[in-house]
Simulated scan of single mutants.
Amino acid sequence: MNLEECRKEIDRLDKELTNLLEQRMQVVAKVAAYKKANHMEIFDPRRERQVLDKIAAMAQYKELAPYLQKIYQCIMDESKNYEREYMKL
């Protein structure tokens, strides 16, 4: 596969990832609504640890697990930011 083909494949995957992340953020809004209605904290360290551990376990290529965990940490950080904004509404 040449560089241009690789980039096309990355573009295709980015489109899929964007769609999935948008869906994830829509669920995050539902989580925020639930937490707001039930006076719950946004940050749940135990849940975050579970997610990161699950991501590492799901990784097909174990050498990629630490990178995937870092990506998911960023996703969760932005999800918390979105929850904060959503809860202000």
Rank of each mutant, 00 (worst) to 15 (best):
Pro45Glu: 05
Lys15Gln: 15
Ala37Pro: 12
Asp44Tyr: 13
Ile71Ala: 11
Glu41Thr: 00
Ile42Pro: 02
Lys36Val: 03
Leu21Asn: 00
Arg46Asn: 10
Cys6Arg: 03
Leu3Ser: 09
Lys36Tyr: 08
Gln60Asp: 09
Leu52Gln: 13
Ala59Gln: 02
Glu41Pro: 01
Ala29His: 11
Ile42Lys: 02
Arg12Trp: 14
Leu3Lys: 10
Gln26Pro: 05
Ala33Arg: 01
Arg24Trp: 07
Asn81Phe: 07
Arg49Met: 13
Arg49Trp: 13
Leu68Val: 01
Pro66Ile: 01
Glu4Cys: 10
Tyr34Val: 07
Leu3Ile: 06
Phe43Gly: 07
Ser79Phe: 00
Gln26Arg: 14
Met76Gln: 11
Glu41Ile: 05
Arg49Thr: 06
Ile55Ser: 06
Ala37Met: 10
Arg49Gly: 08
Ala37Arg: 11
Leu64Asp: 01
Glu48Arg: 12
Gln23Met: 02
Tyr82Phe: 08
Pro66Arg: 05
Tyr82Leu: 09
Tyr82Trp: 06
Tyr72Thr: 10
Tyr67Arg: 08
Thr18Gln: 15
Tyr67Gly: 01
Ile10Gln: 04
Glu5Ile: 07
Lys80Gly: 00
Tyr72Val: 11
Arg24Cys: 05
Glu5Gly: 07
Asp14Val: 14
Asp44Phe: 14
Leu52Pro: 15
Glu78Asp: 12
Glu63Arg: 11
Leu52Asn: 12
Gln23Ser: 03
Val51Thr: 10
His39Lys: 12
Leu17Trp: 08
